[in-house]
Structures are given as structure tokens and as C-alpha cells.
Computed example of a mutant assay.
Amino acid sequence: MSAQATPPFALRPMLPADVPQLAEILRESVLELTGDDYNEQQQEAWISVLDDLEAFAARLAGGLTIVVTLGGAVVGFASLEGNDTIDLLYVHPAAAGQGAGAMLADALEKLAGSRGVAALKVDASDTAYGFFIKRGYVAQQRNSVERGGEWLANTTMQKPLGGDKA
């Protein structure tokens, strides 16, 4: 890859054939990027959502899921649950910090705003908390979620959208 200020990311809707790659992105993202905030048992419990790939595929298909590509390869994905909640947002560790996550979040914020949503919500992991703070999200409450016998902390955050002022 040549040295560029901004990699040439592109967005597109998720295709059913993307599901195995998206599962791998979630797995690698959790295992490689969340170690400062979650222990190994918590990480394993977190990725246990992938034990049932059909259920994971149904979850992705149940919302509006978009993928971000780099040179045609999928490097991240995000999904909107209902019109007002970011359900999932993951970027492969090799592409983390290069703008793919921001591109996904921008797209979901624009979609939600175009649907008349006043505010977008997300249950942000401790790892993703700073990313959402920088984007103007405000912490609403702390949560503890049980997954596979492990407790995982996250924070419900909210960002006002558009409204009368851009």
C-alpha cells in the first residue's frame, strides 16, 4: 500500500456472503483491541456471540448493516438497530485508527438523522468509549451485561442529531 494521508475506504450494504468475514472482524477486534479493558475470560464471553453463526447473521440482517472496504476487502462493519441505536461497530485491527470506524459512524448518524431521529444511542464498550466521546456522544449510564457467565461493563451513550441546526 502506498503512503497516503487517507486510505481509500468505501461503504456498501452488507451482503449475506459477508457474514463469515464480519464474524472474523468482530473476533479479531475484540481479541486484539480490548485487552486493556477486558480480561481474557471476558473477551471469550464477548465473542461467544459468534458460536451461532446463523443467529449472528440474523442479527446483522435484522438491522441495517453496512460494511467498509479497503481495496475491495471488507475491513469493518456497523449496524443500526431500529432507527436510533448503533448495535454493532467493529473495525479489523489492521485497519483500526485509519478512519474506517469514523466513516461507519458518520454513515449511521446520517442515516438515523435522515429518518428523523432526534438522538442516536450506543452501548459503548470501555474500549470504544473514547471514540464515541470524540464524536460528541454523552454518557447516560453505566451497564453490566452478563455473557457466558462473565460480566462486561459498557456505557449507554447518546448523541443529538441534526434537528433544526446542522
Rank of each mutant, 00 (worst) to 15 (best):
E32M: 14
N39S: 05
Q158N: 05
A139Q: 00
D36L: 15
L15F: 02
F77C: 11
G97T: 15
V91Q: 07
Q42T: 09
A57Y: 01
A102Y: 14
A166P: 00
L33N: 02
V117F: 03
D37P: 06
T65V: 11
G62P: 04
I47H: 03
A153K: 08
G63W: 00
G35A: 07
D18V: 15
L11W: 06
V68R: 14
D51K: 03
L152K: 09
M14T: 11
N83D: 11
A95G: 09
A105R: 04
G97P: 04
Q98W: 12
Y90P: 05
D84K: 02
M157I: 13
Q21I: 13
L120Y: 02
L89T: 06
R147D: 15
A58M: 01
D37T: 13
L33A: 10
A105L: 11
G162E: 12
Q140P: 11
L50H: 04
T85R: 01
G116M: 13
D51Q: 14
A61T: 11
K121Q: 05
I25S: 06
N143I: 01
V74I: 12
V117D: 00
Q21Y: 09
L60S: 02
A3I: 13
W46I: 01
A55T: 10
L64V: 08
L26W: 04
G101E: 13
Y90F: 14
T34Q: 09
E150K: 06
G130T: 14
F9L: 05
L104Q: 01
D37N: 12
K121M: 04
R12S: 12
E44D: 07
F56C: 07
T127I: 04
T69K: 06
D51M: 12
G116Q: 08
A124M: 03
V30K: 05
G63S: 11
P7S: 06
P160Q: 02
T85Y: 13
Q21K: 09
G149N: 14
A57V: 04
L89N: 09
S79A: 09
L70Y: 10
K165F: 04
S48Y: 00
V75H: 09
Q140S: 03
A124C: 05
A112Y: 01
L111D: 11
L60Y: 10
V117R: 05
P20R: 05
D87L: 12
F132Y: 03
I66H: 03
V19Q: 07
E146W: 09
A94W: 13
E32K: 05
I25A: 03
V74P: 09
L88H: 10
F9R: 02
A23D: 02
A23T: 04
A153R: 02
L53D: 00
K110Y: 02
N83V: 14
G82D: 08
G97W: 06
D84C: 15
I133R: 00
P160I: 10
E28G: 13
G71K: 01
S125G: 03
M1I: 11
A102P: 14
W151K: 13
L70D: 08
F77E: 05
T155E: 04
V67Q: 01
T69C: 12
L120S: 05
Q141Y: 00
S48H: 14
D51G: 15
E44W: 00
S125F: 04
A45H: 06
S125R: 05
I47K: 02
Q98Y: 12
G72F: 10
R27W: 12
